[in-house]
Design a protein around this nucleic acid. Structure first.
Lengths: 241, 241
DNA sequence: CGAGCCCTTGACACTGTTCAAGGGCGGTGG
DNA sequence: CCACCGCCCTTGAACAGTGTCAAGGGCTCG
């Protein structure tokens, strides 16, 4: 099932088997896209949305000097640009970080869902608002935390999201981002990310090397990042469906 | 009409008279709330959403030291926490900045709208995604711009939004925020905001004093803030309905 | 008249950036 | 097979931007 991980282990979001099936059949075939490719470019009208089945993608915008700011990271099981359905245009670029497997769904199919399956439509709406809640948390992160706090917060969030879809191994997980990518997510230079990570490593809080993150002291990391996971709506007890 | 300003002058968002009427009738009576009040508190389950008819509100979260980060500013004509409808809980606080006039709508009424008026429901969805697009721009602002750039970007955005609902007078507008509020929106201290504003004033770019903002050189201000208004979906030619 | 809030200004400290150099690693072509 | 190149990470030193602390002035409200 392509959509098996969609909204998995999220509070307040139950899809009935019929709804999941409806969504499943609306999706096109799975497609593999290599790392570091643009998938949808800012400003162009789009008639479909992208569902991410495997790998990592990012949404980002560039400043005038060409420096990039990530505005969202996406992990498997997420609709990556469902926003484009009501908006019809993307206000940012969408690209792959690693090799990914995606499937697209035409906006006509989504319109039909809103007319015939209002509860499923509300669940899709819900998933876009989860993105918005993460955006708000990123605003908080950038506005109020120090460099180390930002990195800590980002890693905590990413662990929760990956764990919810079964992609964490204890407190370790694959995260194929370079330190520059991390910097672009956290509003820091790659040089400073390097310093922050080596300090966190020395302190035993977390070790991020070679695309693998191993959180050594989760409570301490969460404290440093002032991280509270409520906004992710993760189910209290994780259930493997 | 309470909803006269809702989505006014926004591209891709046409409400039919019948839809506007339906929305209008779903709203409760207008209520006045004084400045600096909390309206909805983080974490509490809410059964209604708030529509802002007059005045300014903000959504915000506090860090551990009690310092506040605004994650959204709201101007008249906007649904302030429609997010609470699909999410059922707010992940942040919602409060008034000035005296405001609001009206609430019960979530049962909204559920009925999604079942009986799918196009109106998509327009409501659209309005929540406009919020998300603004969130992304705030991430960009905090992640990539200097102090002066952040303030410039914030003021440009606010002008566009107020102009769209007819609350700008040329390039001037009322904005009853203190410099501390501005700092909480832009991730700066009030001291630094003061310095930034006085520099912008001296340079003739913008004068923000006594709750009134007068933009002296809009192109220069937009350049400084690297501001591009596409994400606001403002109609190309403003139309007064 | 005093209290409290808001704004301004100065001196200083600190966090993070910039610039620069070097090492490790993998892929590619001679 | 080896040399080379490009990318990624690390480290150092100097520097810039912003925060912190502190003091003072203007205004409104009680």
């Amino acid at each position: 099932l392509k959509t098996a991980q969609f909204l998995r282990n999220r509070r307040g979001a139950q899809l009935s088997p019929a709804e999941r099936d409806l969504l499943e059949r609306a999706l096109g075939p799975a497609v593999i896209v290599p790392a570091r490719q643009i998938v949808v470019e800012k400003g162009l009208p789009v008639g479909f949305s992208t569902f991410l089945m495997a790998g990592f993608m990012a949404r980002y915008m560039d400043d005038r000097a060409g420096h990039r700011q990530l505005v969202a990271l996406h992990v498997p099981g997420e609709f990556v640009d469902l926003h484009a359905f009501p908006l019809q245009v993307l206000d940012h670029d969408l690209g792959t970080l690693s090799d990914v497997t995606i499937a697209t769904v035409g906006h006509d199919r989504l319109t039909a869902i809103t007319e015939q399956a209002p509860h499923l439509a509300r669940m899709l709406w819900f998933s876009t608002l989860l993105d918005a809640a993460m955006h708000r948390e990123w605003i908080f992160r950038l506005g109020r935390l120090s460099g180390a706090g930002r990195v800590a917060h980002f890693l905590c969030e990413t662990w929760y999201r990956l764990d919810a879809v079964g992609l964490a191994d204890g407190h370790a997980f694959r995260l194929p981002l370079t330190q520059s990518d991390l910097g672009e997510a956290c509003g820091l230079t790659n040089v400073h990310v390097s310093r922050v990570l080596s300090r966190l490593r020395r302190q035993g809080l977390v070790d991020a090397t070679d695309g693998v993150v191993r959180i050594g002291d989760f409570p301490a990391l969460a404290r440093l990042g002032e991280f509270e996971p409520d906004y992710l709506f993760i189910a209290d007890r994780l259930v493997v469906p």
